[in-house]
Design a protein around this nucleic acid. Structure first.
Lengths: 157, 157
DNA sequence: CTTGCTAAGTCTGTCAAGTAGACCTAGCCT
DNA sequence: AGGCTAGGTCTACTTGACAGACTTAGCAAG
C-alpha cells in the first residue's frame, strides 16, 4: 500500500456509517422526492418508480432511522392517513443531494440542460456547493485536500 | 400531490442518472478508498471488505463509466499489473464524498469523534462544504432553497 | 525446468434481496 | 350493502450478493 495513503481503520469510517443508512438503491430517490415536497406513498411510488414493497420498506427504515417522520393528515371525505416528512436529520442530507445533482448535471446530463435548478428562496439566485477551508480559501479540486486521521482514528493493525 | 411540489419528469432527473453510476452499495466505498490514495485491488479488497467478485465488478464498471482508469505499473521482481486511478470525472465526485462524510460525522459518529478529517493541503485548515447562492449569501438550511424547473425540464403528463 | 510465490482476478454453490403484479384493508360516500 | 381510494401486504420469480476455493501470469529460487 502506498505509504502516503491514509491508514485508518476502515470499519469506523463515517462514510460507511452514512451509507448503511442511505446507501440503498431507492433511498436517495425517496429523499430526493421528499426534498421536492412529496410526502405521500402513492406520489412517491409514481415518481420514483420503486416497487411498492421496496418503497414501503425504505420509508419504514427511514422513519426508524429518524430521517423521516410519519404525520397524520386527513383529506376531506377520506379516512386519516400518514404522510412522510423530513426531520432535521433528514434535512441535513441536503448537501449530499445537491452534490449528487451537481455531478449528474455535469457528467450525466441531457444536452437540453438540467431538469431542475436550485434557487435561493430569498433572492432567487442559483445555489451551489463550495468547498472551502475554515481560513476562507476556496478549494477548486479534491487535489487540494489532504485527509488526516481525526480524533476517532485507529491505526490499522 | 401538493401543488407547490415541483412537477418535473422524474425519469430525467440527474440524481437518478448519477445514482445509476455510483448508487450501488460498494461503489462509494471504493471511491472513498480511491480518494484516500488506494489504487490496487487487494488493498481495496482489504479496506472496503467487499467480496472480491463484487469489487472486480465495481472496478470494471467504474472504469467503463470513466470514473477510474486502469494504469499499468510494475513492482521490481513482479510481473506488470494494473492499478486504478481517479479520472477528472471521478475527482468531481469529491463533494459527494465530503457531504456524506460530514453527515456521517454529525449523525452516525462514535463519541470519540470523526476518524478522518479533511484539511487544506496548502494551509492545513479544516475543509468544509458550504451551500451558497451565486449572489454570495450563505444558506444554512435546505429550507432556504427552492427547486425550480430547469432548461431540461419536462412536465409530468 | 519445475516448483513455489504473489497480485489479481474468476468459478461455484448458497442465500438474501429486489421485482411485478395481484390482492387486501380501512374508512368514507352513496 | 356495495364501491372507491390510499396505502399498503402477499406470492412467485429473478437477480444480485456472498464466502471460499480455484485459476492465471510472470518472476525467482532451487
Amino acid at each position: 500500500m502506498s505509504s502516503w495513503a491514509i491508514d485508518y481503520d476502515p470499519a469506523k469510517c463515517n462514510i460507511a456509517a452514512a451509507l448503511s443508512i442511505v446507501g440503498e438503491k431507492w433511498t436517495f430517490l425517496v429523499l430526493r422526492e421528499a426534498f421536492n415536497g412529496i410526502r405521500r406513498f402513492d406520489d412517491m411510488q409514481r415518481r420514483t418508480g420503486a416497487p411498492r414493497q421496496v418503497l414501503s420498506n425504505r420509508l419504514s427504515r427511514l422513519v426508524d432511522d429518524g430521517l423521516l417522520r410519519r404525520m397524520p393528515y386527513r383529506e376531506p371525505g377520506q379516512r386519516p392517513r400518514s404522510e412522510y416528512r423530513l426531520t432535521e436529520k433528514g434535512l441535513d442530507l441536503f448537501p449530499v443531494i445537491v452534490a449528487l445533482m451537481t455531478w449528474g448535471d455535469k457528467h450525466a446530463s441531457e444536452p437540453a440542460g438540467p431538469p431542475v435548478v436550485l434557487t435561493h428562496r430569498d433572492c432567487g439566485a442559483h445555489v451551489e456547493l463550495e468547498l472551502i477551508c475554515v481560513d476562507g480559501h476556496v478549494l477548486n479540486s479534491a487535489r487540494n485536500v489532504t485527509p488526516k486521521p481525526g480524533p476517532g482514528a485507529r491505526r490499522v493493525a
